[in-house]
Design a protein around this nucleic acid. Structure first.
Lengths: 211, 211, 211, 211
DNA sequence: GATGAATGAGGTTTCATTCAT
DNA sequence: AATGAATGAAACCTCATTCAT
């Protein structure tokens, strides 16, 4: 046994290899999409051998899932933290957007990965990237709470949550195409649109009521 | 000789087969996504033979394209018509949404197809389905016009167009999950959110200006 | 019935179509070889339809055979005629070569066709093109006759016939690459080589006998 | 564990499989020709799986090339060696033929392979089998040298080299049909024909000159 | 007879996964 | 645990030939 090189070799090597695979996979999925990626594409960007892949993941599907898990986890955590520090509904929305746009502004790889969604299983390609799923679901819950607490007037919470996510997606795509990427501008735009829009939604009931 | 069925058989049979393939393809793509669909899957839902597929389309890609072309064409035309009849910006937005939601309410197959977008080539999965592309681009142009004409205050037209499309997508997904499907409710929700949101965007400048 | 266009339409049209197919086939086989040629390639150079091909030939193989038959026939006939007018063995050989090289000098298409021999069935690719087969066999017979008649000393007639054909092939390939094509030079070269070589073959026996 | 079979198994197995494929390919090409052979035909004569073929060769073309490379290499080397030991032009020619006929007399498989040349791309079917290519080209060079050195009178070196190769081909085909195969007889026949024929070619100039 | 779409066996190639070393 | 060749199902596509019109 070599004297130094390995006081915790076993575990750390394992971790290192797993990370190497994830890293390579993220890049390839982003470039070629899920369907266009082969396991060999992934392993080729690594100094491992084909078979080794299956010591770490059971299938191509699984790396993809793990990847989304990882990324989704990071984003979800940040969003969650941002949310707790919100004092009112506007800052709730604004914080969400700021974290969201900021995250992708500093993690371009993940943006491209997110867009590479697999092309089978009729899953919603837009709102069901795992990362977004989380955000939408939690946001939807928060909205319901806000309505219950009287902070927001009664309105369709699912439509609203889906709309806020849709705005996020749309604006994100434009933001990422620009140079320089300006997440703050995107945040302000989305926030204004959303907040005033939400304001209008209370009108909706009145409009109806006043018929 | 059957009395009707064959006054110009050759051409009509050809047309019939092409339709059969398109029909089958739409169903399979919707179920399994582009990547998960094989040409055999398509042809199996047909009473044609494998080779016949290639008399009508050169590849899987091509059916997919033709399908989107067809669908996109239909929707685009309707949207275009709706737009010309708009008297003010609110009805412009409202008509767009009404046509959009109404279209998918009565064409569920196409909704599922639209969500099956292929999973390779890093194309935007959300906003670049051919159908939507058209809508967004034209909407973006119309918004610029409206700004130039003074109907709308100066604002980021690309962000806005992308947001309006994002809202459409988000709301559509929720709408399609409900029973009964209520496109009018979706239209009103999206319209209110958008119109008031847009109203708020002018505030944005002022907010900034008043610093 | 149209007044002029067709006093013997039926038969002549049939002949015309057959010729059209043969003509097209010759060109395509020459370009792409037998294996690389599809029936559709052939028919595409024609104003006929796929199915019509099978009114004239039973298979791809058969056109190929007919083509070789036609060409071989032409060449064989010319060779045969040349042979009857030979007064001695030298002019027998010389006439053969002159006709052979002259034929391809004025029928380049057939030269290329001849080289496009099919690539299946382990048939000899060199000496068994149908055209050559004929020549070699007949030449072999003539050589035996010459030996029997005492015009030539005893020697291996099959080896000799094969060699004469081999020379023809080798020289032909070089000749066809040159510009201008000079069949007379080729004829003289091949004739000299052959005649003097044959002269040497009698020595062979003597060499052996004198051991 | 078997005592011998596996001291460096990995590499040796790889080599073994490659050989197995080449061996099978040679047999099938010889039987059916290039065009008539499918990759499946080859792999079927092996205990390997379809996909394995593509671990060793990229395509049918490539096995064929490798095969010719191997064979051509062997023959070329022998011919080259034979040539260096030639003292005069006659022994140069004689050695060439002896090696050539001797080679195929003891490698029947390769004879049949050589005749199976592919049937597409208008390549010369006769003189351009890789093996022969080498011989002809080198022979052509040697002839030019001999002419330059005054060993041979001026004559058309390309025609001559092609003719010598043509004789080899023609005689070989007859030789291989006989039982027993007698390469020495073939060698002597071809040599006599060639040497005396070449002698006659000098006459050609004179004939012309004396006009 | 002419047409040209339909047929379907069969060819080449890819690739997720297994497995012997 | 790592390796990387082997596997073989399955994908895409071609094309000689048939057949209804």
């Amino acid at each position: 046994m070599p004297p130094f090189s390995s006081h915790n070799t076993r575990a750390s090597k394992r971790h290192h290899n797993r990370q190497a695979i994830l890293h390579a996979a993220r890049a390839v999925f982003a470039e070629r999409g899920f369907g266009g990626t082969t396991v060999r594409d992934i392993i080729r960007r690594t100094d491992l051998a084909t078979g080794t892949f299956y010591n770490y993941f059971d299938s191509k599907d699984e790396v993809f899932a793990a990847l989304n898990e990882t990324i989704g986890g990071g984003l979800r955590e940040k969003l969650s933290h941002a949310r707790t520090s919100a004092l009112d509904f506007q800052s709730f929305v604004e914080n969400n957007y700021r974290v969201y746009f900021g995250y992708f502004a500093t993690h371009r790889e993940n943006y491209f990965l997110m867009r590479s969604n697999r092309g089978r299983e009729g899953g919603n390609q837009v709102m069901q990237g795992p990362q977004v799923q989380a955000g939408v679901a939690e946001m939807s819950a928060d909205i319901r709470q806000a309505i219950a607490a009287g902070v927001l007037p009664a309105m369709d919470a699912d439509y609203l949550a889906a709309s806020l996510a849709g705005i996020a997606f749309g604006v994100l795509d434009i933001m990422m195409e620009r140079d320089p990427i300006d997440p703050e501008a995107a945040t302000l735009f989305a926030t204004h649109l959303a907040i005033y829009g939400i304001g209008g939604l209370s009108q909706m009931r009145k409009d109806k009521g006043e018929d």
